[in-house]
Design a binder for these strands. Sequence first.
DNA 1: ATAATGTTTACATGCGTATGCAAAAGTCTA
DNA 2: TAGACTTTTGCATACGCATGTAAACATTAT
Lengths: 337, 337
Amino acid sequence: MNPEKVTSQQVAKLAGVSQSAVSRVYTPGASASKKTMLKVHKAAETLGYRPNSLARAMVSGKSRIIGLIVAYLDNQFYPDAIEKLSNSLQANGYHVLIFMASKTAEGLDSVIEEIMDYQVDGIIAASVALSSSLAQRCSSMGVPIVLFNRAQQDDGFSSVTSDNVSGGAKAARFLMEGGHTKIGYIAGWEGASTQRDREFGFVAALQQAGLKLHAREVGQFEMEQASSATRRMFATDAPDAVFVANDHMAFAVMDTLRFELGLRIPEDVSVVGYDDVPAASWLAYNLTTVRQRANQMVQETVRILLDQVEGNGDQDQHIAIGSPLIVRGSARKPKGY
Amino acid sequence: MNPEKVTSQQVAKLAGVSQSAVSRVYTPGASASKKTMLKVHKAAETLGYRPNSLARAMVSGKSRIIGLIVAYLDNQFYPDAIEKLSNSLQANGYHVLIFMASKTAEGLDSVIEEIMDYQVDGIIAASVALSSSLAQRCSSMGVPIVLFNRAQQDDGFSSVTSDNVSGGAKAARFLMEGGHTKIGYIAGWEGASTQRDREFGFVAALQQAGLKLHAREVGQFEMEQASSATRRMFATDAPDAVFVANDHMAFAVMDTLRFELGLRIPEDVSVVGYDDVPAASWLAYNLTTVRQRANQMVQETVRILLDQVEGNGDQDQHIAIGSPLIVRGSARKPKGY
DNA sequence: ATAATGTTTACATGCGTATGCAAAAGTCTA
DNA sequence: TAGACTTTTGCATACGCATGTAAACATTAT
């Protein structure tokens, strides 16, 4: 109950200089003599002074806050990404105001409004689709947005994803090379560009080899739904391989195949996922999957966003990071692996 | 490049009232007539006005920002907790500034300083130990701190954990009732109160039944280390049951037991974990574990913190939420389950 | 009708900092 | 040593809003 605020005024008085001198000492670009710097630092030290970021933001117009919107945290890919994003932004002197978007994207607009109220310098939207009216509003306020792991070509913002199309294709070719002919696909939420692109690449590669999708069910990126999708898919004319739109669902698929349907993986059925989340390498799953290179994705996201924030702002960019296939044990291996 | 800021001034002019009238319309407790409210709202609507949270924070001294410090995000328990915390705080009109603390806690002090620079109203530290000098500093600034899933009795802040001691005891009794006599323990990072309490409760319950810990290794809450701990523990005179300090490690333990050592679970060895993270119920693990009730923990954490923030601040509280044993298939079941 | 009360309003000020401007203090050259 | 620069400094102001104060207004009681 003793909120002793230390202001630059007090430091100035103690140091025997003006408030503006104190300010300049703490402002990178400003001019201050060695002497005053010393005096100010000493005074600041004894008083325990630290510049008030909020006041600084008010006058400078730059809050050094980045808004981060996330929908899912149960899919391990996102916590991982958040950690990396946060670290990278911290390293650049920015901080992260985090917002959970209800998965239904109902309140998304109001969430964004709230974010903007804090005068964020930029926004990263992970796995979230933005209405173009929102995008309009943000860009008119000069707040750049980068979509992380989701793409929307036409609107006014950048995006960073993995190369989902070619990733899907890689999965298809791997399964075909493994000798599979009855290949199923378990889709994610159809509204997601990741889902669409992965499926597109996958199906295109099958077709290119003269193969048709043997079965298709929708799992909505949720484990429960993926389980029922699996049951439906294997009820009649079971496929000999399944590509699942992400690892998170793939775990449910594998559990269902093994423990409910009594199938062996990969002897009876091959499973390939997408993301390469940490659990994919856990031996109980040992999942063959397409890796999203979170590090590069984060790096690009931060680079693009900060470029735009700091005014070196190029045009909107749409980046797709290469996505290698990680071969483990959940899918039959073609010769040569 | 057209950052058209709309201020309360402009709204006031358009509405034909004073700036303070506009402010009062947007300030819950303030008085404003129906007429002016209408005029102001209409003007605000057409201009697209929203109050600037930062300016508001400056003058009111309340930022409605809560700093959240997290160390790990690979253990699923924390993403889950973050999601719940964030939702709960958002529902109360607060927002979350998130900080990743390097696991080594080196830069923790500087992280806290940065947090404080943003004039946060309170701090939640998840799975992080604070130096008492830091605590000093925060409380002198009037910024309450709540430790989440970590306890430190003597210093000046509250904490919310599960009842780790009794949770550990439950695990011990369950294993003993299951007929195990050679019971091992794989510890987490020894600096963590959760680790200490779980082990204490576990060992105490064993002793109470006249049993001694058969083996003990340290896994540091990390999967790699947990795997090597398992190898060491089972190299000679293998136990017939293992209690692992958290689920995250337990998965590595189970994988190592099954796929490296060729042991069957629970026929050859029983495994019990702690946390009940989502993956514990995945059938590949189907882990018997002690549940940390994240919902209640979050609820209590937010309640305590906001009480203190909003001045109804009681004394520091140390809350331990009851932690039930969730019986699944990874440990041999005593009769009656 | 008037006084007494209760509501609503505008004015003015301050939150803590950055920054343009002009004066002051240094630095260098001839 | 004077003049021409360059660097440093203090002053004043502005950022956008909330709030204390006193005046204006509306409502009720007498």
